[in-house]
């Protein structure tokens, strides 16, 4: 915004800056705090914001290494955080791949092919997208219970079940990719058809290579969404070694077994990579959000 305001501009800038800094301090307070907590010994607040005698206790435990206390006793890691992180990554990776494949082919058809009920399917998908899976959890639980009777690795308490449950959320991605496909000149594929390409080849050799940017965005969006997904995972996964991070982490703050310090280290350890991915891809994600949002 170009505001043409020559007089007292300098003061205004400084007011703005100070306001912004105060706001930032407020916003960043939880993050700074959690870093401080992760270096504090013990799991209970000790009365100072900057740890007086920093200890790596929580970090050892977060990495799964037993910690030897000064009095000689050994604290074993309570929860397998790294395993949970690994589970989360596995689930997110495979479900994002699936989502990407399904939404890309779907978007291709919606953008390029003409068939009956095309419009209806699109509208229906956009409306269905608004219904959160949360509400149908009983049905989803029953569904996977039944699937598990026939295919055990897709049953309750398997990572496979969570992975495929996330396929339901592809409508938004279809919409995003479809929008991108529509910006690609249709005559490219027509040229390919004249060159002898089947529709599949035109899709595979012409359209796909040109759509890599949007596919990356969709992959990242799907990845981040499934890492953070809580409700479905929380009812489908039970045993300690199968939990994803989103479901497992809350166990740290159980009132009966309050592990504030351990949680801090585990949260930083597992949250940092995801945050970095997000910030690194910020530009594309923001672009995707605004275009997808404004259109859909």
């Amino acid at each position: 915004m170009a505001m043409v305001q020559p007089r007292n501009l300098k003061y205004r800038v400084w007011y703005a800056r100070i306001a912004l800094w105060l706001f930032l301090a407020l916003i960043l307070f939880p993050f700074l705090m959690i870093i401080s907590v992760s270096f504090r010994s013990g799991n209970f607040a000790t009365g100072s914001l900057i740890p007086e005698n920093p200890s790596l206790e929580h970090w050892y435990l977060a990495f799964g290494i037993p910690w030897e206390n000064p009095d000689g006793s050994v604290t074993e890691p309570f929860f397998p955080v790294l395993l949970w992180l690994w589970n989360s990554i596995k689930v997110a990776f495979f479900s994002s791949i699936l989502v990407l494949m399904l939404s890309t082919t779907g978007a291709y058809a919606f953008a390029r092919l003409r068939f009956k009920f095309r419009e209806h399917m699109l509208t229906a998908m956009m409306i269905l997208q608004m219904f959160p899976a949360v509400l149908a959890l009983v049905a989803i639980y029953t569904l996977f219970d039944k699937i598990g009777d026939y295919i055990p690795w897709l049953g309750i308490n398997s990572l496979g079940s969570v992975t495929i449950a996330y396929i339901g959320g592809i409508a938004l991605h279809i919409w995003l990719i479809k929008g991108y496909f529509e910006t690609i000149d249709n005559s490219l594929e027509e040229a390919a058809a004249i060159d002898g390409a089947t529709p599949w080849q035109a899709f595979r050799y012409v359209l796909l290579p040109l759509s890599v940017p949007i596919l990356a965005v969709v992959f990242i969006l799907a990845f981040i969404a499934s890492i953070g997904e809580y409700p479905v995972a929380s009812i489908l996964l039970h045993s300690m070694d199968k939990l994803t991070l989103a479901v497992g982490s809350q166990q740290y703050l159980n009132p009966q077994n309050y592990l504030w310090g351990d949680f801090a280290a585990a949260a930083i350890l597992s949250g940092l990579p995801i945050t970095i991915i997000f910030l690194a891809c910020q530009r594309w994600i923001v672009g995707g959000l605004t275009s997808g949002g404004v259109k859909g």
Partner: peptide, 15 residues
């Protein structure tokens, strides 16, 4: 289908 017709096409947008 187009490729069996053995025709060549030059598009306005070149494609």
């Amino acid at each position: 289908p187009p490729h069996e017709r053995q025709v060549g096409m030059v598009f306005q947008s070149y494609a």
